[in-house]
Nucleic acid binder design. Structure first.
Lengths: 337, 337
DNA sequence: TTGTACGCGTTATCAA
DNA sequence: TTGATAACGCGTACAA
């Protein structure tokens, strides 16, 4: 089909080796020869074949990206794709290709992610949406394949983890409420299984404990779904001793909570202040617009690639990187009366 | 590095050719030999090298997916990634890999998308977010490379287009308002440049024209941004002759409109009914929740792959496919008083 | 039924 | 500075 270096070689009466060297700008080819060869390549419409190149260099120049489905979140609300933007851009910058895998419960769990990687000969892998109970987690940790894990806990010789600085973010959320004068501050927790959830709770607990204001009674269970946010509010409304401000460990729960509060005639933020975490799209248009902690998804994606490439190049940098969050102030929090 | 068919051949005292045939289940190898070879392959931990295979078969088994940034929509609101889910699943089903490209204004426009495809030797390409003024549109249309274009207009020998049935969707939106008794129905149009926008307008116009109720005065310009939705409402409020119901050609404009209406003390849906198009995440949590036309993004992605694979296999099916939309009734429309 | 030999497009090594 | 040759791992006609 396409024109190869052989064709160029024949046309110019030289050998393929010479063409290869000239096109790769090796020092051992004369300047005039290079010019001639380049011109011929363009004229003939030569397009290098990366497959042949990869065969001989034994490098694929490709990174595998896995988007794993989570139970709790429907794809519609799946945060996963947001990281993709940063991942692609950063990979592009370093001339790496992205091979995309998507694993859903039904389709997959047949083949280890690592097998897929080995088969495709990718040089490294990025995992999004990995859970601590994933059957192949051990596989990833043990494998010699360089990996970056986004937004989950995975510690191993060849894996880096990248996530938001969830502790600092949670602390910033509480600090904002604290600054507004609130002292009775509650939390709707995420599911114990999720790394982000544990970290956010820890940030929350630590901040208030240091100020002698942590109150176990104001800790409400949740699992990152709207429903659990709604359920938490039902609990709150039943009790006599209510917090004056509430931190939901993610926006989805905050939205679930908001709906119930409004349904019961509670005004936000006059009657209770509410702050979320994630800054998902929905948090912008609800009424009142939700004050929340924004994640920098693109930056997380980029950092995942940076750490991965460092590993691939054997220049081991850090094992983990936590990306700054940002307080997004909207209308769901008010000073304590 | 890895173990190859040569290693297996040596271990078993046969030739590599035999191994290859056995592993590919060719008819000219004895059953017992096959068993022996398979066992040895597993024991030695053999993983086939797709790169070598591709070199010799000259097929990459890979589809290129391009996500192009649109001017108007920030990535946060970019619908593009939603299609990805269907694309991946359907490709997976047919054992095709996905190579992901993302082109932003700054980075790109350096190399034609088709060049990228040729270099990577992908067998076909899917384009998301392609605009009619894209500098490489002609390239795609002319190229012999099979392509599917999602949500944009592109007609050519080797390209299929897949989108929502925007006309029918728009008609369904107006029909819903009509059924509620509205006769003075307005529209906030999208930008002329976008295929979806033109189609939605056409669906709207046709429906009302047939019923002698199309009124040019109720057509407000827009460009799919929140701001243009807001601006349209300003115009509406200034005029004496107002529609009783409003169809925004996308949800983003509907949200912009909603905000201004509420800001001016107008109640939705009591004072005016509002319906959008897209069913983006935000439309669920605004107040009142937005009635809208939902797109089946996953199905669009799947269909794009189906048409593409048909082209790759030379079994040319249809050139275009329009996917059903769905009326999502929420709280922003009410019967005419 | 098995083995031989060559080709895929490129890079690398060594000799000229 | 250039050329010849081998090698990368696999698939496949063709010969045995």
């Amino acid at each position: 089909m396409g024109v190869t270096i052989k064709d160029i070689a024949r046309a110019l009466g030289v050998t393929p080796g010479t063409i290869s060297k000239a096109l790769n700008d090796k020092p051992d080819i004369g300047a005039d020869m290079k010019v001639k060869i380049r011109a011929a390549a363009i004229e003939l419409g030569y397009v290098p074949n990366p497959i042949a190149r990869r065969l001989v260099t034994n490098r694929s120049n490709t990174i595998g990206v896995f988007i794993l489905d989570r139970h709790e979140l429907s794809l519609r609300e799946n945060y996963g794709f947001q990281f993709l933007d940063g991942i692609i851009k950063e990979s592009d910058l370093h001339h790496y290709d992205i091979l995309l895998f998507s694993i859903t419960k039904d389709l997959a769990y047949q083949k280890s992610y690592i097998s897929l990687c080995l088969e495709r000969r990718v040089e490294g892998a990025v995992f999004i949406g990995l859970r601590s109970d994933d059957p192949y987690l051990e596989d990833i940790i043990r494998s010699p394949l360089p990996a970056s894990v986004i937004d989950a806990e995975a510690r191993g010789q060849n894996v880096s983890m990248v996530a938001s600085d969830n502790r600092a973010g949670a602390a910033a959320a509480v600090d904002y409420l604290w600054g507004l004068g609130h002292r009775r501050i509650g939390i709707i927790k995420g599911s114990e299984r999720e790394f982000a959830s544990r970290e956010r709770y820890e940030g929350f607990r630590h901040y208030l404990t240091e100020r002698n204001s942590f109150n176990e009674a104001y800790v409400y269970p949740g699992d990152f779904t709207r429903e659990s946010g709604a359920a938490a509010v039902e609990t709150i409304m039943k009790s006599q001793d209510r917090p004056t401000a509430l931190f939901a460990a993610n926006d989805l729960m905050a939205l679930g909570a908001l709906k119930v509060f409004k349904g019961k005639g509670y005004r936000i933020p006059q009657d209770i202040s509410l702050i979320g975490f994630d800054n998902i799209a929905n948090s912008e248009d609800c009424d009142p617009a939700l004050t929340t902690i924004g994640q920098n998804a693109a930056e997380i994606g980029k950092e995942a690639i940076r750490l991965l490439l460092a590993r691939i190049r054997q220049e081991n940098k850090g094992k983990a990187s936590f990306i700054r969050t940002e307080l997004v102030i909207r209308d769901s929090c008010a000073p304590l009366k």
